[in-house]
């Protein structure tokens, strides 16, 4: 029986390295756990704070669970909090964001698919130049187009309107959506288009019958990417909207920074969670595609 056998030096060494391995393993889990706490802490604090009363916030600790659950802050954040002079909560602005994001996502994805299809499969002289120009366009800091865009929207009669914001998001989202679809379609062998041409199909038929049915994964990636970008946008929202057409991020910032009255931290946190909820939901439901979009957006070509 090994239990009674005298221990050889080699066995001791093994035992030692086993202990070492186990210790390392524990250290690893401890570090991973600590980091998880670091990333989760703000979310935890947001949720608990939003469920506390102001009184409890003032007297209690930042990281304590609420002693008494109250959804008052959520109700206020949704329909009563003040953004500047108006006090109707986040609700109207949440719907503004929906009204901006949904058409802008659909339009920019559709156009990106068509552009990507042309650039990847119907290469004509100059198509690559156009693609390079689009790629560079992805990287411009939007500050450089902010002023002329404001003037242009004014000239078009779209200043401060939701259609104006939709147009802005579609135009400046096109570079990325085109890039996504182009990089996806470029992996599809050119023979497929040739075969379809010989079969008698034309440009649109080939797109509709052959390419679109293939595209579900990249459509999901693009829609998620665009939705996250547009929903989370602040710069265009704050620059090109006016009272009544502001998206939810702008309204959230206004609620948090409104200087009138008592600072209601619980309402701020509830409002922040409401503003974050749609993108968080998308992330939880379709995280795989979200990550794919992020990495595709950064590892070009």
């Amino acid at each position: 029986m090994t239990d009674f056998a005298p221990m050889s030096p080699a066995a001791t060494q093994n035992r030692n390295s086993d202990v070492q391995k186990l210790a390392l393993r524990w250290l690893l889990f401890a570090m991973l756990g600590l980091f998880a706490l670091f990333y989760l802490m703000p979310l935890f604090v947001m949720v608990t704070t939003s469920l506390k009363s102001l009184e409890e916030i003032r007297t209690g600790s930042l990281i304590a669970f609420p002693r008494e659950l109250t959804f008052e802050a959520w109700r206020t954040a949704w329909s009563g909090a003040c953004t500047g002079i108006k006090c109707e909560g986040l609700q109207p602005y949440f719907w503004n964001s929906v009204l901006i994001a949904v058409p802008a996502v659909l339009l920019s994805t559709g156009l990106g698919a068509a552009n990507g299809y042309v650039i990847a499969q119907w290469n004509f002289r100059g198509a690559n130049l156009i693609f390079s120009l689009m790629l560079f366009g992805c990287f411009i800091p939007f500050q450089v187009v902010l002023l002329p865009m404001a003037m242009m929207l004014g000239k078009m009669g779209l200043a401060g309107t939701i259609p104006g914001l939709i147009l802005t998001h579609v135009i400046y989202g096109l570079g990325f959506t085109t890039l996504f679809f182009r990089n996806f379609y470029v992996t599809i062998p050119a023979d497929l288009v040739k075969a379809a041409k010989v079969d008698g199909a034309g440009f649109f038929r080939i797109f509709w019958s052959i390419f679109l049915p293939l595209s579900l994964p990249i459509i999901v990636v693009t829609v998620i990417w665009q939705f996250t970008q547009i929903w989370n946008d602040f710069l265009f929202g704050v620059s090109f909207s006016q009272a009544g057409t502001q998206p939810v991020t702008v309204a959230l910032n206004n609620i948090v920074n409104s200087t009138t009255g008592v600072k209601e931290y619980n309402v701020d946190m509830a409002a922040a969670i409401i503003a974050a909820l749609p993108t968080l939901l998308v992330y939880v439901v379709a995280g795989k595609y979200f990550i794919r979009g992020l990495t595709a957006g950064s590892v070009k070509g």
């Binding site: 023979d191 497929l192 040739k194 379809a196 010989v198 079969d199 199909a201 052959i210």
Partner: peptide, 21 residues
């Protein structure tokens, strides 16, 4: 004349079968 009107059929090296059909 465009390919569809040439009365030809073609078999490709990669077969080029429509993947979703």
């Amino acid at each position: 004349v465009s390919p569809k009107d040439r009365d030809i059929a073609m078999v490709f090296q990669s077969y080029a079968l429509y993947p979703t059909m």
